[in-house]
């Protein structure tokens, strides 16, 4: 008997599509409860970190041959955001770091309400006050990034997330901030336009943009100093791990709003994690805490849903 007989036989045993679908639905319902509970546990008095914005050691300024952030937003079908990136409130950064054979350039960021043609909702609530950032990712050797339909692209996927000093990365990251975005490849450069809830309220603490290998958050990617609340890339991590300090204007910090934001994630009543999203479940328990992104196509006047979880 060949050793493959067993493997080939078992490989034909696959879960039904209905089972997979049902499981995902239940997981997403469960996740919203878990997130609220974990935030409740994690929530603690703020560690105020007065920071001087210094770009990370090893960071170089290099944005040669890259599109502008406004151009990227335009290419991604978001002319309003493109205009915002060209406006005065945008913060042009253009800081690059090279790691793992890739050069990551944090190009620009902009925050504000209703500055995007994309409409993101959570449980039906429109999330209009957002922070947007554009990151360019290039192969360090000058070769093009793999196209999305190329299997090699699986090795060129990165988890991009803001992290706030004073909070462990597993406590506050893109998951908590309703993060998402879109990306495209132009002239071999992968441009990522990512959006999260407005993070300028945390400016007095200091905020990072972290990039790590894979599509999941891995705690091992970064080292968190509980004493200082600061993070650093973990040199022992098996993959890319880079951090950029965001040069946020400290005068934009709003500690009270930040505290309310965190409390709001616990639920409207702030008691047992029930409340805000409780009504989002139907009697069959189907998950309805959907983050929905819509984009105005600019022509028909209709909102087109382009991504829906």
């Amino acid at each position: 008997m060949s050793r493959n007989v067993y493997k080939e036989m078992m490989n034909r045993a696959v879960p039904s599509a209905a089972l997979v679908r049902k499981t995902k639905t239940r997981m997403k319902k469960e996740e919203s409860i878990v997130i609220k509970q974990s935030l409740k546990l994690a929530f603690r008095p703020a560690i105020v970190v007065v920071m001087v914005m210094v770009l990370a050691t090893g960071t170089v300024f290099a944005a040669i041959n890259l599109l502008g952030a406004g151009d990227v937003a335009e290419q991604l079908g978001n002319p309003s955001l493109s205009a915002a990136f060209e406006g005065e409130s945008a913060v042009e950064i253009n800081a690059s770091q090279t790691a793992g054979g890739y050069t990551f350039t944090l190009m620009s960021m902009v925050s504000g309400s209703d500055i995007s043609d994309q409409r993101v909702t959570r449980n039906g609530e429109v999330l209009s006050d957002r922070t947007y950032a554009v990151i360019a990712i290039q192969k360090a050797d000058g070769s093009p990034m793999a196209d999305f339909d190329d299997p090699a692209a699986d090795d060129e996927r990165f988890f991009i997330s803001p992290y706030v000093k004073g909070y462990a990365p597993q406590e506050l990251n893109s998951y908590m901030l309703s993060g998402g975005g879109s990306m495209t490849i132009i002239d071999g450069v992968l441009y990522v336009l990512t959006d999260v809830d407005n993070i300028t309220m945390f400016a007095d603490r200091g905020v990072y943009i972290g990039i790590s290998s894979g599509v999941f958050f891995f705690g091992e990617a970064f080292i968190f100093d509980e004493g200082t609340g600061e993070m650093a890339p973990n040199p022992a991590f098996d993959g890319v791990s880079v951090l950029f300090d965001l040069p946020l204007d400290i005068s934009l910090a709003d500690p009270e709003k930040a505290e309310q934001y965190m409390a709001g994630l616990l639920g409207a009543d702030g008691e047992d994690g029930e409340g805000a999203s409780e009504g989002a479940y139907d009697e069959y328990g189907d998950y309805q805490r959907e983050v929905v992104v819509e984009v105005d196509d600019g022509n028909s006047g209709y909102w087109l849903e382009v991504a829906r979880d």
Partner: peptide
């Protein structure tokens, strides 16, 4: 020009698919 969108809930979809 190909465009891909992503959301943090992708984690669940990804891990179940994988």
């Amino acid at each position: 020009m190909a465009i891909q969108s992503f959301r943090t809930d992708d984690d669940i979809d990804e891990v179940v698919e994988r």
